[in-house]
Design a protein around this nucleic acid. Sequence first.
DNA 1: CAAGTCAGTTCCAAATTTCGGAACCGTGTC
DNA 2: GACACGGTTCCGAAATTTGGAACTGACTTG
Lengths: 260, 260
Amino acid sequence: MSALTNAIEILRCFSSARPDLSFADVMALTGKPKSSTSRLLRSLRDCGLLEQDPHTRRYRPGLLTFELGRLHRAHDDLISMAERELREVCARTGHTGYIAVLDGFEQVVLRIVPGSNPLRVVNPPGQRTPALATSNGRAMLARLSDEDIRARVPATYPKLPRNSPQNFKQLMARLDEIRRTGVSEAADESIEGVGSQGFALKSGETGEMIGIAVSYSVQATTAAERANVRRELAAMAAKLRRLTGDPLDQDTARIQTGTR
Amino acid sequence: MSALTNAIEILRCFSSARPDLSFADVMALTGKPKSSTSRLLRSLRDCGLLEQDPHTRRYRPGLLTFELGRLHRAHDDLISMAERELREVCARTGHTGYIAVLDGFEQVVLRIVPGSNPLRVVNPPGQRTPALATSNGRAMLARLSDEDIRARVPATYPKLPRNSPQNFKQLMARLDEIRRTGVSEAADESIEGVGSQGFALKSGETGEMIGIAVSYSVQATTAAERANVRRELAAMAAKLRRLTGDPLDQDTARIQTGTR
DNA sequence: CAAGTCAGTTCCAAATTTCGGAACCGTGTC
DNA sequence: GACACGGTTCCGAAATTTGGAACTGACTTG
């Protein structure tokens, strides 16, 4: 195991649930001996990837991660194009918008567009959640091959909220439905009372994929309003797919013009 | 040289001026042989610290840096307290506010508070600039010991803008002035026509230090307005120093009450 | 106030990695 | 067909990492 692998293993211990860690935390989470942990933490701190609170002695991601994280944003094009469209939809509907990417079987929130409706933002950028339990996460999974999906889902199927697919078979059924209808919806999953609709966008040029969702309070929306969101999303998806050369665009076009 | 050192060396090649790099760029910037560069880039990409554009094949900071960078923000207290105060001053004066930290002889922008005056934001968060050429940078340096300052300034004094201190002696003279008067000002340095005033804030609890500045157009402000900014900053500095237990607070208090 | 905990540091020989030069390869371009 | 770019693979020598154990120094607790 290389020094870099070990370093990453430590860095991956940090999350929004655990934004800072003590020496003992790191030892417990990585299972590495004391001396190794000591050396590694010092290296990471010295190089700026970690910082240490002088008072509590706890470690947290460092200045370098802040700088590099800002640069990651620069990689725009697909994301900023989607964000622009999403902003308009959120302004019209008042709901909250999310853009996320897939990483393994989880998704990471990249951008959020707060809506005018007072539903507080629950997933700030950087947040990592199981993709299986969100509308845009499942929309992204639905665009992968079945083998790829199987490879991403952990050996032991994770424990998910009540309304999420509870096993691999249920998951595949939902993904098939998304593939057939092109609509991905979630309600009362990650957070009770919150629903969302989403879709996946794939750049024809680079092949990178993002998931776009609009989120709302289930109680505070009518079926008509949700249908409206569905229409808005379908229009946005069609426009973005055309703009980005999403391979799905051709399919949809063919179907609509009866070529197939 | 450890694998981690090499990895960091690569990561540090990225900057807002160079947000993405080709294989050849990395080789040239690090001076490492091809095989080492290849291995290292692959490791960094595989672990999420770098991403590779599938189309251009260029490398850029990866998803992991984005996630960790968001977590760095969590380390709030001192910064968010300062930001709150800065926000009020910027609202009152209409100017743009900056909060930065010192890293070696450079500073990194952490937060910016856009003003209502239409001076475009020139230093987005994550931006790295020589601390010697900014008002808050010099204010931070002024609070270090002379040996510490000497250790931070590179062996060959850097080439700085016209109005910045041009050599070590000039620098020390300006820092002494800041120490005497408590006021740090800059005009026409990093950017022509832009001036700023700043101060350094040090937490009495953790010892961490940040630099706070208000920036404005030199042409568009009168001497009276600049004096007003000076007063606003002095008031903010006094309040924040009291709130954070800045060691300077005791000194100032002692002087003001004539204890010394 | 002795004992214990937390957060490290230092040491060392053994085990593992890394290093860099060279050869090779696939794609795109002149 | 040659050349450049952007890599990958191979290999032995050289350097680094590893983990157990012993040791510190600051706090806390019984």
